[in-house]
Design a protein around this nucleic acid. Structure first.
Lengths: 228, 228
DNA sequence: ATCAAATTAAAACGTAAGTTTCAAACGCTT
DNA sequence: AAGCGTTTGAAACTTACGTTTTAATTTGAT
């Protein structure tokens, strides 16, 4: 298997393809797998569904990724790194800007990357947050280990920042509020709507990311800053 | 197959059992299936896992419920009806009590049934809300149809109530806030914690329902009543 | 042009899934 | 006690899954 670094050094390869802009096999698998994992979940998505829609051979998955488990990990890891990095960059920028460290400003450091991703199809679009959401409830063992080791800094940074922004609250209160706040935000961008179980067409279903943010920010900020 | 009504007329049957308090086959299947569906999801739970743990024969599932799909529907429907009824009863009680129709009071009409269920193992305990949560993201087609027809009144009643409690907001704003509010509440009781993906032990993980409520109510009420 | 490595293709493998079958056991009425 | 509908039990069936194997093909460097 040729590694990514080698591929990037030879971009002419794609020009030889008959079909223009058709990504290589591994990328096509990742793209289709991401969409199907989000739509149907990990277990309900078969390698045959993936390879058919990606127009690649069945064996290509095991050749490029090793196993279905490893494919899922690759799908997830492709997105999580850049996303966390974007959030931390926003945090850095805010802290070094000299602006007041308010709850709203902190919320926006998370929302802006979400919004950016939601609008960029090449970065998985709105699919990524939905993938996170599904991953959360499906609770993959392997993923937990890797994420704990690599991205615990994400929570630590936000915890410190919120403690600085909301000094009037105790650590435990802040933990609860962060728990709720990130929950709402993730579910909002993922389009999870409990009420949609019961009624057919909610206004909320038309999920324009900008509209989500417009209503989401006041709600979350109010929750975070509410008196105990 | 003997129907439930007939069974209830013959309670002596259980007394004949060697093992005391051992529910009948169908109930044992429902109980185990509920737990496994919550823990592993619908697709990842096999009928063989269920029947082994329930100590019943494999064919019993198809005999009593018809199919795995139908079993899931039975598992879900056993809980949703009483839960919605409990919420509506709280709503009725509140509206007829003459108390002020505040956002907090409305929130409590939802939270009290959640809390009640969470503490009653015979009613599925905390499992039910987690089942709702998983069902939401797994998005079963069959279930949607049934729920839309039966329980749209749930959303309608709460929508009317919140419109009365928050007359200063427009209908669309209220729809968004309800969307967020019910999302937080469901996820709180379901124990879904996005941050738990990144760090091993959150305080929130120790999920005492009373603690959840204590922190949840101020957060949700603040979000619902925040100025636009 | 040639050769070795990387990739793709087709087929088969072993396993586990949901479902079905049919006989045995049980429970209730007569 | 007999008979009949209900329930349970053990086994087999069909299908689909993830994976492996082997050969064909393509690719890139010599």
């Amino acid at each position: 298997m040729m590694d990514k670094a080698t591929q990037l050094l030879n971009p002419m390869k794609v020009q030889d393809d008959m079909e223009v802009n058709k990504p290589d096999t591994a990328t096509r698998i990742l793209d289709v797998a991401e969409r199907l994992f989000v739509e149907h979940g990990f277990e309900a998505t078969s390698l045959r569904m993936i390879t058919q829609q990606a127009e690649v051979n069945l064996a290509a998955v095991n050749y490029h990724f090793g196993s279905k488990d490893a494919l899922f990990e690759s799908v997830f890891m492709r997105r999580i790194g850049p996303f966390v990095a974007a959030c931390l960059a926003e945090l850095d920028a805010l802290e070094q800007s000299g602006q007041a460290l308010t709850a709203e400003a902190l919320v926006l450091t998370f929302i802006k990357p979400c919004l950016m991703l939601s609008k960029d199809p090449t970065k998985g679009g709105a699919l990524f947050v939905r993938l996170m959401s599904r991953t959360l409830v499906e609770n993959h063992r392997l993923l937990r280990e890797a994420l704990n080791q690599q991205y615990s800094v994400f929570v630590q940074r936000y915890t410190s920042a919120f403690q600085a922004a909301l000094p009037q609250f105790e650590t435990e209160d802040i933990a609860w509020r962060m728990h709720f706040a990130f929950g709402v935000m993730f579910n909002a961008f993922a389009g999870n709507d409990v009420l949609k179980i019961f009624v057919r067409s909610q206004v909320v279903s038309a999920r324009d990311p900008d509209m989500v943010v417009k209503h989401l920010v006041p709600f979350v900020v109010a929750g975070l800053t509410a008196p105990v």
